[in-house]
Amino acid sequence: MSTHRSIPRLLCAPLVCLLVAFPALSPCWSAALAAESETPYAAEWQEAVEAYQSKDFARAEQLFEKAASEGHTSPDLFFNLGDTYYQLGQPGMAAWMWEKTLALAPRHADARHNLAVVRKSSGGSESTTFFMFWPVVWLWRRYTADEWALALGVLHALTALFAIGWIVLRDGGGRRFARAACLAGLGATLLCAAFFVPRLARAEWHRYGVVVEAGAVVRSAPGAEEPEYFEAPVGERLEVWEEPVRGWLRIKRPSDGRVGYLPESSIRRI
């Protein structure tokens, strides 16, 4: 095989590795991560679900909130709490809960759907993505920082394994295979790291919030007398830039980059 023909294959290999292996492995490590333990609040959960189904939403909210305030975190707990808030006529709080669901489980299709419903209802708009970036955005949205870290660890180990083969084996077919696999693994590892690092930054350092009050007005400066800048629809996700100053938070709207101030009470941090 000539060199110029082998180079594109070598470049494609990391992407193919990542695209094929990662989704295939994802259920395995998700299952591995899942501790098959009994939910500590199973009784309250059942009671809350029954209250919801019998349309006693106030009681359901009370029970789900109790579980959440005790420090239990689960995508389904936040999702159900979001549904309950929605039924109680608090779409902002519902959107906040669904955002928390998505932060824990980005593949939670129901939470994504419900958020879209709330945002459409409140007149919010989603930023559009250029079609060439769809695969990147798809991968970015689908997996958490935790999953990217696991993938990175696995690819890291595999790459090292092939690198050892490449170093130790004597010239021959095995060594050639190890070299190709090592380079492909290295590419896949770097690609994976390129997803992991921003995801980690978003999970650990960037702060987002959801507008929970209807008619929340973003102002140009902190203060109720300052000029109005724009209205933030209920359920919109905003980037929170700084700690509150006199009860006002400095926010940035990701869709158009506008920066302003919003009362702390109008927003809940994810």
Binding site: T39, W45, D76, L77, A109, D110, A111, H113, V117
Partner: peptide, 9 residues
Amino acid sequence: IAHIHAAPP
């Protein structure tokens, strides 16, 4: 909107 999930996590 999508319905709540009844199965405990």
